[in-house]
């Protein structure tokens, strides 16, 4: 192909036959929201304002109980109900994850190893949400991809009266959802389920079984030794 001596020429832009990439097309900011004069927007509020705020445990228990009641009407069976609770916990977990890391400020770190993220969950996350650490963190010996976090007295079991038809319901599914959200969000995809494992001292003891996706183990194996 022959070129002009000066290969450049300005030209008017062709009309965008290839229109703006679809994914970017809807990103324009707009608002119809009214803001109260006395209350500024959520962006003006400091994220640490309610950091140490407390409410009564029974307020949570009542809310949680009603959440279960409502969800129960829309499901068929205990497993479905636990899935719904897991979803609620998931939404909560996603938010706590970012909030906690933001609160750590400049020293905030992302976990890159399985043990790291599990310790974050059983220590920092648990303490921030439930004002106590998880009771144990263990690896399941038989299965490479499984770990367990236990809670002797999960707050979701306090005062909650489980509907009779759902006697096998484990309200810990809510906490399992929180844990699952933190793992998924931090790039350690996993499935987390709650299991009642009472012992003499703790009738409400619950174990959260964490089963990691294969890619997490593959990545972990690559990182060993580094």
């Amino acid at each position: 192909m022959n070129r002009d001596p000066s290969p450049f020429r300005t030209a008017s832009v062709a009309s965008t036959a290839t229109s703006p990439t679809p994914k970017y097309a809807n990103l324009t900011a707009s608002t119809n929201l009214r803001y109260s004069l006395t209350r500024k927007s959520i962006y003006d509020r400091h994220l640490n304002r309610t950091k140490t705020s407390e409410l009564s445990k029974s307020a949570f228990a009542f809310l949680f109980g009603e959440m279960v009641q409502y969800a129960q009407k829309k499901v068929y069976g205990v497993q479905d109900l636990e899935k719904k609770l897991n979803l609620h916990g998931y939404a909560v977990g996603q938010r706590f994850l970012e909030l906690l890391l933001w609160r750590e400020g400049r020293t905030a770190k992302r976990e890159t190893r399985i043990l790291g993220i599990l310790q974050f969950i059983s220590h920092q996350l648990y303490r921030a949400i439930f004002q106590k650490q998880a009771d144990t963190l263990e690896k399941v010996r038989e299965n490479e991809d499984e770990y367990m976090i236990s809670d002797n007295d999960p707050v979701v079991n306090t005062y909650i009266s489980v509907p009779k038809e759902m006697s096998q319901l484990n309200c810990g599914a809510f906490i399992a959802g929180i844990i699952e959200a933190v793992l998924d969000g931090h790039c350690f995809p996993a499935k987390v389920t709650a299991h009642t494992a009472p012992n003499e001292m703790w009738p409400g003891r619950t174990v959260f079984l964490i089963k990691f996706e294969p890619e997490v183990l593959e990545r972990e194996a690559l990182r060993v030794g580094s």
């Binding site: 705020s53 407390e54 009564s56 445990k57 949570f60 004002q131």
Partner: peptide, 12 residues
């Protein structure tokens, strides 16, 4: 009153 993290209730 037994207490609990307010943000947990808010988010729930």
């Amino acid at each position: 009153t037994d207490k609990i993290n307010a943000e947990l209730v808010t988010l729930t």
